[in-house]
Nucleic acid binder design. Structure first.
Length: 852
RNA sequence: GCCGACGUGGCGGAAUGGUAGACGCUGCGGACUUAAAAUCCGCUGAGCCUCGCUCGUACGGGUUCGAGUCCCGUCGUCGGUACCA
């Protein structure tokens, strides 16, 4: 784009103010005990989801949430709060490691470059971060405490009775063996099927598999020994404790569905001498179970398969093992399965039913075995009809139901002692019956799985664990942080052995002691970064007790982070993992609130100008640096807030950026004009005069609305109100400086550079302004008296349609307004020949004459 | 399939059950200028018999003096999730 004259010299004053904020540490906030700390001020902790510093640099999506929180932070600061508004880097991750593999450089170098670029870009946008609290998840001083928190998990177990984590030392004091103790730890080792990617030389998280497959890498399932975190122990609390949180209901629901609680029963079926337990949410349909299905991986399959069926079963299991999860869950292909030759005894009626294996039953959910009731389960129905298995109706559908397979509640039939009873009661009775006979129990099952916590990567936190005689053991806290050694090269080993196993000297500690070579996933660092901000330089604890007590204080609310803003992509995993860690720390007495994030707001995605998701391949990516260069940081900030509601998905528009740029130029020209030489000088229209009534009204209405809109995060309407008042002030022949100064105050959180610059100019030219809330940069207080109108416009309707308008004195009695309305010529012409049935007067608003 | 969010001008969007379209963009006309840019002013939902009237917030019903807003149903878009027994 061709260089053209800037409408105001943002390129001069923006860097100037940024430099000043940096050298004066304007936005650094003291902790309890620090000089200048004022305990009487309320705290406000406003948090952004910290970025992964990718090589691509800042995306326009980042400043959306960051500007929103910055406005809130600056506003709360003007209101007199101690505001904690920090930023940091989620800097471990695969891209930096991939870069290291290609270049042979240590991933730290690439990470540092990217962090420096991100920091530069963010500083250019003028965010009021306390940079003294910057954290980086890859810093040894940070890794140390991530590993320390891992050890808290490792050294704890979940006490079912109190539903809380307790120190493992309590078990050691009892007479438990080491195996029993290890089996109870919140961090434990288990053999688990993982997504192994040979090219990358690492295991991938489920949600990463598709991404790398799309790039042409093979990913296969392999059972490997893995570290797991016992998040399932917290399933119920993770559901229940959502209740008090000020989060979008949709996100709460998403988490609840992810955890997936379902109530049902475990029922024992006998197969020969063996026992198979199934999980069902419909124990009331037990009489309708006509077959049983085991997951192909079920351990009992080998023992119950008859010799005649052995070949078919083996072939089927091999076919399943080769399938990816995606292929296996492809619904469109219909059901497959093989008869094992064995039968199971239905405990309720002694019927022998065939036992099948089929991949529509997952080993990872419930018990990996189901009783199939084709009459009342659509999947079982599809399978049974395909394989010619009988269907027995045991729940009578209500009158009028046309479902071929009825899955709702009804009345029990063909169910012996349960016939005639409604479904909920049948459930209760059958469970009581099973429990009495010792054949089953009521139970609650969750979809949530324990968290697979180990990766075979280099660029992550090593586990603070050593192995001795086949057993794991924590290293002493004094040895933290445990950092990964430098490697000759960062290429994968090609085997599922973690990369760190290549560092033989680091791994082998002699005397048969070897280091754990797995590393932690990227989630580890992001699980607790918000805590570290509270006391980022503490060398003795993950955070100091005083800092914890102050910054997470409840202050009459549930406490924790007061406002957390970020994208929906973290609705489940990050937010669930962080809640889990926080609860463990809470149980162990390290933090004083059970939940980390009191209020959560999701910003909506910003699309390209074409309405498509921004991507390099579509060529619709907007680079914030370019926008800042052409229109300034204030314009970018303001535009992103003016686009529409924060939570909404919305397309970018360069024309829209120009619109807010023009608005800021108008504000600039309220204060400045160019002289003959083309230099910016004070606008001669500015006068130290009393504003007239109309001017006062619009300015005070703006103070009120902008304040309310910031509180409700309706930034777009706040900006439009400031546009209205700017347009009003621009029209004046003599512009009262006090009115301009008030406008600049409320605009300050949105466009801090421009307003600071103009404020400084005004204060120098009009010393009278240099007093009170304006001089102290406090949020102005509006005067309600100035909002009151002498005359109010009343809309006159006939049968709900607007026919006329009229001005009445503010506070005129309803009778008077009604008389005036009925006297209106327009109203009379529209009621001519009709009878007035009713007159509705809404004080200060309208009159509706009902006539027919 | 299930769960969730949302359907308002040419576009982004605004409207405690009370004047639909604030504010911004686009477009058109005008002022300034030798000219252009920038700036400033006016108009900009549709239709008509253009004083003014009628229609209009995805569609069909309902509640109400009054519905974009509340209720029921339908269609559509987006997001999440998926054989979870």
């Amino acid at each position: 784009m061709s260089e053209r004259r800037k409408q105001f010299p943002f390129d001069e004053f923006e860097p100037k103010w940024q430099a000043r904020w940096e050298t004066e540490k304007t936005f650094s906030v003291p902790n309890p005990g620090d000089p200048g700390f004022d305990a009487s001020k309320p705290k406000f902790f406003v948090l952004d989801m910290f970025p992964y510093p990718s090589g691509a640099g800042l995306h326009v999506g980042h400043p959306e949430g960051y500007t929103a929180t910055d406005i809130i932070a600056r506003y709360r600061r003007m209101r007199g709060d101690n505001v904690l508004h920090p930023m940091g880097w989620d800097a471990f991750g695969l891209p930096a490691e991939e870069h290291a593999r290609k270049t042979g450089e240590h991933p730290r170098l690439n990470t540092e470059n990217n962090v420096n670029n991100f920091r530069r870009q963010l500083k250019r946008l003028g965010f009021a971060y306390d940079w003294d609290r910057e954290v980086n998840t890859t810093d040894p001083g940070y890794v140390r405490w991530t590993q320390w928190i891992f050890l808290q998990l490792y050294n704890s177990y979940f006490d079912e009775a109190t539903q809380k984590a307790r120190p493992i030392s309590e078990l050691e004091a009892q007479d438990l063996g080491r195996d029993e103790i290890d089996a109870k730890r919140l961090a434990y080792v288990a053999e688990a099927p993982v997504n192994w990617c040979p090219d990358l030389g690492t295991v991938l998280a489920n949600e990463e598999v598709e991404e790398w497959r799309a790039k042409g890498h093979a990913v296969e399932r392999r059972p490997l020994k893995q570290w797991m975190l016992r998040i399932t122990a917290y399933a119920q609390r993770l559901i229940d404790e959502l209740d008090g949180l000020d989060w979008p209901e949709g996100i709460k629901l998403l988490q609840k569905n992810w955890i997936g609680r379902s109530e049902g029963a475990l029922v024992d079926f006998a197969i020969g001498g063996e026992k198979v337990t199934v999980f069902t949410t419909r124990p009331d349909t037990l009489f309708g179970a006509t077959y049983m299905v085991l997951a192909p991986e079920h351990p009992l399959v080998d023992r119950i398969t008859t010799p005649e069926q052995k070949d078919a079963v083996e072939a089927y299991r091999r076919a399943c093992a080769a399938k990816s999860d995606l292929e296996r869950t492809d619904l469109a292909k219909g059901k497959t399965g093989v008869f094992t030759g064995g039968t199971a005894t239905n405990p309720v009626n002694g019927e022998e039913i065939p036992v099948w294996i089929a991949d529509y039953v997952m080993m990872s959910y419930g018990t990996g075995a189901i009783m199939a009731v084709p009459a009342h389960d659509e999947r079982d129905y599809e399978f049974a009809t395909q394989f010619g298995i009988p269907v027995i109706e045991v729940v009578q559908a209500p009158e009028g139901s046309t479902d071929t397979c009825f899955t709702g509640d009804g009345i029990a039939v063909n169910s012996g002692f349960l016939d005639g009873l409604p479904t909920p009661e049948v459930k209760a009775r059958i469970i009581a019956w099973l429990e009495e006979k010792g054949l089953g129990t009521k139970t609650v099952n969750y979809k949530l799985r324990d968290w697979l916590f180990s990766r075979q990567r280099y660029w992550g936190e090593p586990f603070p664990i050593v192995w001795k005689d086949g057993r794991h053991e924590a290293i002493p806290e004094s040895e933290l942080p445990l950092l990964a050694p430098e490697l000759e090269d960062y290429k994968p080993s090609g085997s599922p052995e973690p990369i760190l196993s290549k560092a033989a000297a680091w791994v082998d500690l002699g005397n048969g002691v070897a280091r754990e070579t797995n590393t932690m996933p990227q989630w580890a660092g992001s699980c607790w970064y918000y805590l570290r901000y509270c006391d980022a330089r503490n060398a003795d604890r993950f955070m100091g007790k005083e800092a914890e007590a102050y910054w997470l204080a409840k202050n009459g609310k549930p406490g924790g982070v007061d406002l957390y803003v970020g994208g929906t992509e973290h609705a489940v995993l990050h937010l669930l993992y962080a809640r889990f860690w926080h609860k463990v720390l809470f149980d162990l007495g390290h933090v004083s609130t059970p939940e980390p994030f009191q209020k959560l707001v999701n910003q909506g995605l910003i699309l390209g100008e074409d309405g498509q998701k921004m991507s390099k391949s579509r060529g619709n990516v907007v680079n914030p640096d370019d926008v800042v260069a052409e229109y300034g940081a204030d314009s970018l900030r303001l535009y992103e807030m003016f686009m529409g509601p924060l939570e909404q998905v919305k397309p970018w528009s360069m024309k829209g950026v120009e619109g807010v740029y023009r608005f800021l130029a108008r504000v600039w020209r309220l204060v400045m004009e160019t002289n003959q030489e083309g230099e910016w000088v004070l606008n001669a229209k500015l006068a130290d005069t009393e504003p007239d009534k109309g001017t006062d009204k619009v300015v005070h209405a703006t103070i009120k609305k902008v304040g309310e809109d910031i509180e409700s995060m309706s930034f777009n309407t706040a900006i439009s109100q400031m546009m209205v008042s700017t347009n009003e002030l621009t029209k004046l022949e003599r512009v009262p400086v006090s009115s301009v100064a008030l406008l600049l105050q409320v605009l300050n959180p949105f466009a801090p550079h421009l307003t600071e610059e103009l404020n400084a100019t005004l204060a120098a030219a009009f010393p009278s302004l240099d007093a009170g809330e304006l001089a102290n940069r406090l949020w102005p207080v509006y005067d309600p008296a100035k909002l009151i109108e002498d005359e109010i416009e009343i809309v006159l309707q006939v049968n709900g349609k607007v026919r006329d308008k009229l001005f009445v004195a503010n506070g005129a009695p309803n009778e008077e307004v009604e008389t005036l309305a009925l006297a209106s010529e327009k109203v009379r012409s529209f009621t001519e020949g009709l009878t007035v049935r009713k007159v509705i007067v809404v004080p200060g608003r309208l009159v509706n004459v009902v006539a027919n």
